[in-house]
Amino acid sequence: MARTDIIPRGGARPHLLYLRSTRSWNIDRMGGLIPQDWRYSAADVYDLQERVLEDIDVLFFSGMHDQLFLKSIEPKLVAYLSAGGHFLINGHIILPWLPCLKPFKAVSPKPFTNWMIRPAEPGAYFGRMDFENYHRHEGILGQYARGYSDAPEGAQHLCLIGGPTPDGGIHEGPVDWVWRMPGGGKVFVHNGDHIEGFCSDPRRQPNLLHDILNALVFSDEPKAGAPV
């Protein structure tokens, strides 16, 4: 549910800062993908070391980001989260650079249905998506994601990936999840390459990226006060 009492850190409009990184896909497209009634800024990821973040609502990281660098400024990023700033993180985390992140885990691509994305608690983030199709790229499975990462306790598991394993077990997990730091901001993680590549062109409705961003800043999901 959208809350009307939230005042963005950016002022009258939410402020998203896109961090340019290693040959980020969509690097020159982002200004057109972020809602036009938001404030949008872009900066080199290495500028984070010095940049003041108090007027930023969402830090957006592409699937290709320098995890060694981000780990080196972890205290600053945790302070931003503690103060109510939000993260939208794409990519495979190999070196967790926030305390709430865990390493990526691939699921078996066989059977192919393991790569079909299913709803868990999609909420305001994915609730308007057609789960049969929204995650296919030109009809192909797997471009969206090939695995997941474990989410912190209290996180909202939005979408699931995985399924049967060759040894007869089940291996599945949250490919997309969002967690709220108690008393702080939220961390949205897409364990694929670039969430903005799916149902996020501004001519597309419903619009996945817009839904995710609005849910991050304005929804009460996950609820404040959820278990740590």
Binding site: T22, M64, H65, D66, L68, F69, L70, I93, I94
Partner: peptide, 26 residues
Amino acid sequence: VTSGDGAQLQCYRDYQSYLDAELYLR
């Protein structure tokens, strides 16, 4: 040589037995 991207970090871990060092480009 790594730029710190997740795929490159993953490759170093996967082929570490053949590699002597991960060199941070920065």
